[in-house]
Write a protein that binds this DNA or RNA. Sequence first.
RNA 1: GCUGAGGUGGCGGAGCGGCCAAUCGCACCAGACUGUAAAUCUGGCGCCCGGACGGGCUACCUAGGUUCGAAUCCUAGCCUCAGCA
Length: 359
Amino acid sequence: MIKEFRTLSGKKYPFPIFFPDATQAVVKTLDSIDVANSMTPGVLVNTYHLFRELGQAPIKKFGGVRTFMNWNGAVISDSGGFQVMSIIKSGSGKGKVNDVGITLYTSKKKKILLTPEKSIEFQIKLKTDLIVVLDDFTPPTASFDEAKDTVERTLKWAKRCRSTYDKFYTLGEGPYLIGVVQGGKYQDLRKYCVQQLVEIGFDGLGYGGWPITESGDFDYTSAETIAACAPENYLLYGLGVGKPDEIVKLYKMGFQIFDCVLPTRDARHERLYVYEADNINNINLNQEKFYKFYVPSKQKNYLLDEPVSSACDCLLCKNYSKAYLAHLFRINEISAMRLASIHNLRFYSILMEKLRENK
RNA sequence: GCUGAGGUGGCGGAGCGGCCAAUCGCACCAGACUGUAAAUCUGGCGCCCGGACGGGCUACCUAGGUUCGAAUCCUAGCCUCAGCA
């Protein structure tokens, strides 16, 4: 059983660990110092976005994304596999997927081809502490046969990813290499995918695909299948997971690594997370509902001279009133989103602390 | 005082005889957001019939009038703004 996350430079962070998404090497509205001050141990960057917007030259010049963004904590990278869904399969953008890789058209004349090999090579150049194989996303509406196709392609690509990784590192000595489990709601496919990935060999497995069922509930069944089938010494990573209560449940199943856009996106959209407790010590994750949402710019908050949460020690809660934050949001001031993002990140870092205390 | 422009729902601002309870924006209310093409998106927003549908009522400065029918046309009044005295 692995107890902590280690970085390439040898730093260690206890599990569970949550990585907010700094997709383009920045957590939106924050800088690296802000993120560090929210007690966030690491961030996630995205291969596709950096490949497209930044390119290789700055990464080479700075010797990796960490030094580029002056971040001292952990960094993990995603492969670009999720963009298969968010851009291509959702129908909102143009691109295609075939055995070669993923092609995304960024304009009428420009396109990007992301292959398993390219994805791994680029992630290795980013010098991130954990890298993820390129995978073929199983759409939530996929039939069994369609889901099986995505699993087979994911496995083929996983094999190529592993081969590419082996050119640079020996497994277990370099950055963590994570295989992604696809298969949608079909548990036999999930199980098969896990077994085949383990056959290839990885440091851990990611819970891939869209984890929300058609009725809007979190798909815990697939998470359980993955956790049950994975070897003891494997890391388990909930890709894009999730809401605080979902993380709590997956952690109990054995998942240790999480990343999600929710805390930062919600902050920008005026949804702040608040523990149902009067101070940090009294936070109880075993409560039925251990947190609630706070929407700052409601008219009823305009005059409130109190912190957003008394169970928080973030920059916002220690220094500013609800009334002031409401004002900042109302005038659409960037500081509002910054303070809210810092607050939500601190909520998540407290969540990790409490989970560690719980076990 | 004269001349010109204008008075529309919380605000700004369309409409200029029926399809108008009235486009749109802001504000307000509610909801969504899960490996970030997301500081975004969706719905509501005169009152009442519990909600939708449907219906009723009161409304476009005030008072009259024309008309089958008026926020829209006419008359008078009140008020605002601009220019000139």
